[in-house]
């Protein structure tokens, strides 16, 4: 299959995707639009592709989850457009692209930084089917005025436990960028999942 094109306007498209990601991570659990005209090879979603093209390059190893890693077209697309090395070891990854979020590996598989360098941690980018901030579990923390809700799916059964563990390890931890068709939201490590009694 012929290689699919990248951004039509590499400079301004990458800037727009970055600003959406910046807004998402600085205002956790708030859904905002992420328009993209990319048509990457399946099962890579346009949103995953847009974030990879905007943020990844030769300095940032990418880890692909099994559905993505199983596609030669996806690997060729990402290699050509980002130049990023693809790694089979999640602990090496700067970014992890996850097309099957229900089977997202345990967060402990990824780098969560060191006490003196908490920034040396992975960012997981998930392609979800739905993402909605009108309902769902509540979060508090930096970037959130009072509390914010986010309903994301499908997610693993122990999702709440994983998020709680990730926030408890602050300042270490992984950061999550959640995407669904045309939408993006962020759950950085500082976003704390509230217990039902607090929410």
């Amino acid at each position: 299959m012929a290689l699919r094109p990248g951004f039509a306007d590499p400079v301004h498209d990458a800037q727009a995707v970055f600003r959406a990601a910046l807004d998402a991570l600085s205002r956790p659990a708030r859904v905002r639009p992420l328009p993209t005209a990319l048509a990457p090879p399946a099962p890579l979603s346009p949103e995953l592709a847009a974030l990879a093209l905007a943020l990844a390059d030769a300095d940032t190893p990418l880890w692909l989850d099994p559905p993505l890693a199983g596609s030669d077209d996806v690997a060729a697309f990402l290699r050509f457009h980002t130049g990023a090395p693809l790694t089979a070891d999640p602990a090496e990854a700067a970014f992890a692209l996850i097309a099957d979020p229900a089977r997202c590996p345990d967060f402990a598989a990824f780098a969560r930084g060191a006490p003196d360098y908490p920034d040396r941690s992975a960012t997981l980018i998930l392609a979800l089917r739905h993402l909605d901030d009108a309902a769902g579990p509540a979060f508090a923390g930096p970037g959130i005025r009072g509390r914010a809700r986010i309903d994301a799916g499908p997610v693993p059964a122990d999702w709440a436990g994983r998020l709680a563990e990730n926030a408890a390890a602050f300042p270490l931890g992984i950061d999550l960028i959640l995407t669904a068709p045309g939408r993006i939201a962020g759950l950085p490590r500082a976003a704390r999942l509230l217990q039902p009694a607090e929410a």
Partner: peptide, 29 residues
Amino acid sequence: NFAYLDEGTKRMIRRAILKAVAVPGYQVP
């Protein structure tokens, strides 16, 4: 290039900004 810096430099700075936002107050090299 738009806004002077090359795209590779902007990407590097953008990644640092995203980690800075994720760990408020921590100085990202």
